[in-house]
């Protein structure tokens, strides 16, 4: 009986040690990738390529989702607000939900699914086909060549995507509220403008999405870099990237919302 209990305690201990070690390895990886700044010319070329893969290729899904989420928010909001004769407040409702929460959060979740999983799979495949080892044997640091440009591309792309998401979402709400439901366009904008504060809303939107970008890209790169090099390992790592990023995004969002708007 007591042996079983001690075994369980040992399991908990091993689990904790594994996790702490994993976090340590992830930290070292990120530190090494960031600190060794890439050389300017070659680094820029690599970064541009990754911005294309990570940013440009995620743009369609972000814009389409943003448009629809803005429209749905407006439709649902309208049916509730119109009951109180407060349909004028549709603009601020949509704009504030998008800028404060949905913009950064949904963009980061979509980004984790679209770009994060692709990063993990790509790097996992590079590792399992020994391309990373091969770079090392060519005296080229894979952290600098492979990890760093992808990290920066993620950190640059996600905030931009979140801004695009919120912007197109607000225009989606405008389509539903003004063109369809007949709210006056002037009052839609003026009430919206009166309630959106650029420092508390837009800057916080950017802060949130930068934090999410760092976390998602970091998890994706770490999962790929430390993959068990076989097909099963890669598929597992890809799933882990999406699950862990999503949980991290939602938890961090709650934390940051409490700090920014909770007071």
């Amino acid at each position: 009986m007591s042996v079983i209990v001690i075994d369980k305690i040992a399991n908990v201990g091993r689990w904790a040690i594994d996790n702490v070690m994993g976090m340590g390895r992830a930290g070292i990886m990120l530190y090494s990738a960031i600190v060794r700044l890439p050389r300017f010319k070659k680094g820029t070329a690599l970064l541009v390529k990754q911005l294309y893969v990570v940013g440009v290729q995620s743009m369609v899904i972000i814009l389409v989702s943003g448009l629809f989420i803005g429209m749905v928010l407006a439709l649902q909001g309208y049916t509730i607000l119109v009951g109180y004769g407060a349909e004028q407040s549709l603009g601020p409702m949509v704009a504030l939900s998008l800028l404060r929460e949905l913009g950064p959060v949904v963009t980061a979740l979509l980004f984790a699914g679209r770009a994060g999983s692709a990063l993990t799979a790509e790097i996992g495949l590079m590792k399992s086909t020994e391309q990373l080892s091969s770079l090392e044997m060519m005296a080229i640091d894979p952290l600098r060549q492979i990890i760093a440009p992808r990290f920066w591309a993620g950190v640059i792309s996600l905030p931009l995507l979140a801004l695009m998401f919120s912007t197109i979402g607000i225009y989606g709400a405008h389509i539903v509220g003004v063109d369809w439901k007949g709210i006056d366009s002037g009052s839609f904008w003026s009430i919206l403008q009166a309630s959106v504060e650029w420092r508390s809303d837009i800057v916080n939107c950017l802060i949130k999405s930068v934090v999410f970008a760092v976390v998602v890209t970091w998890i994706a790169l770490y999962r790929g870099y430390h993959v068990i090099p076989n097909p099963e390992g890669i598929s597992k790592a890809t799933t882990q990237t999406v699950v862990q990023s999503s949980l991290a995004i939602l938890a961090l969002d709650f934390l940051m919302t409490t700090m920014m708007f909770g007071q």
Partner: peptide, 9 residues
């Protein structure tokens, strides 16, 4: 020379 070749894909 790696077994898989390890060419950059």
């Amino acid at each position: 020379l790696f077994q898989s070749g390890a060419l950059f894909t």
